[in-house]
Design a protein around this nucleic acid. Structure first.
Length: 722
DNA sequence: TACTATTTAATTTTT
DNA sequence: TTAAATAGTA
C-alpha cells in the first residue's frame, strides 16, 4: 500500500493526527492550521490503510457546506466516489435516522421538518389560541426557551417551576407547543437531535446496530457541539467507538446558541484513553497577524493553550485607522478597496467584517458611490423566501393534510374569501375537537358557516385534493410545477407592483428547477416530495445562489468563520459595538467576544486593517465610544496608526452657538479639529472629517449637509466655526 | 381587504 | 435611523 498520497504535504503534527492509533483522539486545530485537511486525510487513512470499510465511518459537520466539502475532498483523495460513507450535519444525520426508524422514534411516517420561522408562527398561533398576552410572553423568548431546553436534552416533564410562576408558564407553553407539533407530525431542528438521541437511548438494539456499524466517528468544529449533540456522540461511541474530534476552543463563538466549548475539556475525561494533538503551524497568515491574534486571545482564561506560528514572512504591520465617524470610516475603507482593485487584485479577495449586520449600510452606500461591486452575506436564503415558503406550504398540504402550519399559511393566499372570521371558526372547532385545521375546515364548512364562506372553504379543500390527485403520478419537478400553477400564487405575484412580483415569479420557477435537479437518496423510504421538502428545510439553499461577479465581500465576523482573505478590514472596533454592549457585563460574554475578535483577525492572510469611529450614529443617536479594548491588546510593535487618535469633543449644549469666529487663515491650529462644525458661504453647514498639510497649503475635508464631502483649502475657504 | 399610520425595539445564526 | 409589526381607516 502506497501511503504517499495520504501523507505527503502533511507536517509532523498533522501526520501524527492522521496516522494516530485507533483510539479516541482530540485534535486542537488552530485557525488556518489545516483542520479540514487532517479530517479528510484521516478518513482516507482509515479506509485505505487501516482497512475500515467506508460504511464504518461517520463524519459529522455543522453545515451542509462543510459536509459537501468534506465528501468532495475525501473522494478526490481516494479517487473514487464513496457513496456509503455517512457524511452530514448533525441534523441531517439525525433526520436520516428518524426516517429509518420512524416507528421506534414514535413519529408518523410522513413527519415534516419545520424551520425556525415556522416554529415562531406556531408559537404565535398557540399564544393566540390560549389567549395568552404576547406582550408579556414574547414569542421570541418562548422560542428561545424551548430550543434551549431541547438543546440540553430536556423535555417539559424534566423541568420544574421551582416556585417561579414565570417559569411555570414557560414550561407549560413548551408542553403545549410540543403537543401541537406532535399532533401535526412536525419536527423542529432541535427536536431532530433530541428524538434521535432518545431513539438510541430507548432502543438498545438499534443503538447497538449503529455502534457496530460506525466504529469511527469524525467530528468537525467540535467546540460548537451542544449538550444533546455531545450526548448523541457519546452514545454512539459507547465503549468501543473511536471518535476523532477536531476543534478549536479559541474559536468557540456560538455559546448563545447552545454550543459548549467545555466539551473539548470534557472529552479527555469521558474518553480517558484519548490522545491530544495540537495543530499550531499556520499556513494562512503573516507572522504579524498571528502574533497579534495570539496576543489578543492570551487575555482569555480557561483555554487549552495554543500558539500559532508560521514559517512565512513577518508581513505588513496591522494598520489602525481612527475615523471621525462611521461615514469617514466607510470612506476610508472604500478608498483602500478602490486602490486594491485598481492595483489589479480580485475584489473577492477583500472582505469587510463587522460585528452586527446593521453596520453594512454605510459601507454599502460608500461602495455604491465608488461603483465597487460588493456582496453582503447573510440575507434571506432561497428556501426562506416568503414566496418559496408559500409554494412549499401547498406542497406540504398535498403530502400531509394535517400540517396546520402550512394550512394557515396558504388558506387565504391568494385571497379566496376565507377571512380571519372563518379561520377563527376553524381554529375553534379544531381546538374543541383536538383535530387538525384541515378536518375542522371540512366540518365547519358543512355546518356553521355562511353559505359564501362555506363555499370558499370547500373550494380550497377541493383545490388541495385535486392538486394531490392530479399530480399523484408525476415526477417531482412536474408535481412542484403543477401545484404552483394550481395554487394561484403566480397570478397573485403578477399583480404585485414593482419588480418584486417578477422576482418572486422567477424564484418560483427556480424552485421548479431545484426540484428537477434534486436527487433524493434512493435508500430513504420517503416519497420524492417528502424528501424534497426535508431537503428544503435542512438546506436553506445557500448553494442556490450561483456565479457572483467579482465583488468585495461584506459579512459579520461570525459568518466569516472558516473563510480567509488576502485583505481584511475589521471595522466598527469600538467598545459597546465590539465587544458588544450586551456581552461586556459578564466575563464569559467578554471572552466570547474576544474569541470572535481572534476569529476576525485570523481571517486575514496578508493585510489587515482595523478601524473605529470616534462618533457613530446608532439607532438614530450619535454616540461617542472609545476604541475597542481589543485594539489595545495588540502589541504596539505590530501596529501602524494611520491617523493618530483625535479626541472628539462633545457638541456644545446649545447646538448653534451664537458666537462664531472666523478661522485663522494661516494653518490648522486653533479650533480646527475633526468633528468641528463649520459653515461655508456657498456649501452651507458641515463637519470637518479630515485635515492635511500646514500653513498656506492646509486643507480640510468637510462633509456638508447638503452638498456632500469636499476638500477645501483653508486659506481660501473662509470657513466660519460654529 | 388593502393601504397607511403608529409603535416598538435594535448581536451574533445554522440546522 | 429604520425595519418590522401592529392598529386603524377607506
Amino acid at each position: 500500500m502506497d501511503v504517499t498520497p495520504i501523507l505527503q504535504d502533511l507536517n509532523d503534527a498533522q501526520r501524527q493526527a492522521v496516522t494516530a492509533p485507533l483510539e479516541p483522539l482530540l485534535v486542537i486545530a488552530g485557525a488556518g492550521s489545516g483542520k479540514t485537511r487532517v479530517l479528510t486525510h484521516r478518513a482516507a487513512w482509515l479506509i485505505d490503510v487501516e482497512g475500515v470499510p467506508p460504511q464504518g465511518l461517520l463524519a459529522v459537520t455543522f453545515t451542509n457546506k462543510a459536509a459537501a466539502e468534506m465528501r468532495g475532498r475525501i473522494e478526490s483523495l481516494l479517487e473514487m466516489p464513496v457513496r456509503h460513507l455517512w457524511i452530514g450535519t448533525f441534523h441531517g444525520l439525525a433526520h436520516r435516522l428518524l426516517r429509518r426508524h420512524w416507528q421506534d422514534a414514535k413519529l408518523p411516517q410522513n413527519f415534516q421538518i419545520i424551520d425556525s420561522d415556522d416554529q415562531q408562527r406556531i408559537i404565535k398561533r398557540m399564544l393566540r389560541s390560549l389567549e395568552v398576552d404576547d406582550s408579556r410572553w414574547v414569542p421570541r423568548e418562548i422560542q428561545y426557551f424551548i430550543n434551549a431546553q431541547k438543546d440540553e436534552g430536556l423535555r417539559p416533564q424534566h423541568l420544574h417551576d421551582e416556585g417561579d410562576p414565570n417559569r411555570r408558564q414557560f414550561i407549560s407553553l413548551y408542553q403545549t407547543y410540543q403537543e401541537t407539533c406532535d399532533r401535526g407530525g412536525l419536527v423542529d431542528f432541535a427536536e431532530l437531535l433530541l428524538r434521535a438521541h432518545e431513539l438510541w437511548r430507548d432502543n438498545p438494539d438499534i443503538l447497538a446496530h449503529y455502534q457496530r456499524r460506525f466504529r469511527h466517528l469524525l467530528v468537525d468544529e467540535f467546540q460548537d457541539t451542544n449538550a444533546i449533540q455531545y450526548a448523541w456522540l457519546r452514545l454512539l461511541a459507547g465503549e468501543q467507538g473511536v471518535p476523532f474530534v477536531v476543534g478549536d476552543d479559541d474559536q468557540s463563538i456560538y455559546r448563545w446558541r447552545g454550543a459548549r466549548v467545555e466539551h473539548i475539556y470534557r472529552f479527555q475525561k469521558d474518553f480517558p484513553s484519548a490522545g491530544v494533538v495540537k495543530l499550531e503551524q499556520n499556513y494562512r497568515s503573516t507572522a504579524t497577524i498571528l502574533n497579534a491574534a495570539n496576543a489578543v486571545i492570551a487575555n482569555n482564561g480557561s483555554r487549552m493553550g495554543k500558539n500559532l506560528w508560521t514559517e512565512g514572512a513577518e508581513g505588513e504591520p496591522i494598520r489602525v485607522y481612527s475615523a471621525y465617524n462611521e461615514r469617514d470610516e466607510a470612506d476610508f475603507i472604500v478608498g483602500r478597496l478602490r486602490d486594491w482593485s485598481d492595483q489589479g487584485n480580485a475584489r473577492a479577495d477583500a472582505a469587510v467584517l463587522y460585528r452586527s449586520n446593521a453596520q453594512s449600510r454605510v459601507l454599502e452606500e460608500g461602495l455604491i458611490n465608488a461603483g465597487l461591486p460588493y456582496r453582503v452575506y447573510g440575507g434571506l436564503r432561497f428556501f426562506e423566501r416568503a414566496e418559496i415558503k408559500d409554494a412549499l406550504a401547498y406542497l406540504r398540504l398535498t403530502s400531509n393534510r394535517d400540517d396546520d402550519n402550512a394550512f394557515e399559511r396558504v388558506v387565504n393566499k391568494p385571497t379566496r374569501g376565507i377571512g380571519a372570521r372563518t379561520v377563527e371558526a376553524m381554529r375553534d372547532y379544531a381546538r374543541a375537537n383536538s383535530c387538525s385545521l384541515w378536518r375542522a375546515a371540512g366540518a365547519v364548512a358543512s355546518d356553521g358557516l355562511s353559505g359564501r364562506a362555506s363555499a370558499s372553504v370547500v373550494a380550497f379543500l377541493n383545490l388541495i385534493e385535486r392538486a394531490a390527485r392530479d399530480t399523484e403520478n408525476l415526477d417531482l419537478h412536474e408535481k412542484v410545477d403543477h401545484v404552483i400553477q394550481m395554487s394561484g400564487l403566480i397570478d397573485l405575484f403578477r399583480k404585485e407592483k414593482g419588480e418584486q412580483g417578477a422576482t418572486r415569479i422567477e424564484n418560483l420557477e427556480e424552485l421548479v428547477s431545484a426540484a428537477r435537479s434534486f436527487e433524493g437518496d434512493p435508500a430513504d423510504e420517503m416519497s420524492p416530495l417528502d424528501a424534497f421538502l426535508a431537503h428544503a428545510a435542512l438546506e436553506s439553499g445557500e448553494g442556490q445562489a450561483d456565479a457572483w461577479e467579482d465583488c468585495v465581500q461584506l459579512m459579520t465576523m461570525h459568518s466569516a468563520k472558516g473563510l480567509e482573505f488576502p485583505l481584511v478590514f475589521l471595522c466598527g472596533m469600538e467598545d459597546g459595538l465590539f465587544p458588544h454592549q450586551r456581552s461586556v457585563a459578564d466575563a464569559n460574554g467578554l471572552e466570547e467576544e474576544r474569541r470572535l475578535c481572534y476569529v476576525g483577525i485570523t481571517r486575514a492572510k496578508q493585510t489587515l486593517y482595523i478601524s473605529y469611529a470616534e462618533q457613530r450614529r446608532l439607532h438614530g443617536m450619535d454616540r461617542l465610544s472609545p476604541p475597542s479594548r481589543f485594539i489595545a491588546e495588540i502589541p504596539a510593535d505590530y501596529v501602524e496608526e494611520i491617523r493618530p487618535r483625535v479626541q472628539v469633543s462633545r457638541p456644545v449644549q446649545p447646538r448653534r452657538s451664537s458666537r462664531s469666529s472666523s478661522l485663522p487663515s494661516n494653518g490648522t491650529e486653533a479650533g480646527v479639529h475633526l468633528g468641528q462644525r463649520v459653515r461655508h458661504q456657498k456649501f452651507g453647514e458641515g463637519v470637518i472629517l479630515n485635515c492635511e498639510g500646514q500653513g498656506a497649503h492646509a486643507r480640510v475635508e468637510v462633509n456638508f449637509e447638503s452638498s456632500g464631502t469636499k476638500w477645501l483649502v483653508l486659506s481660501y475657504a473662509n470657513l466660519d466655526l460654529m
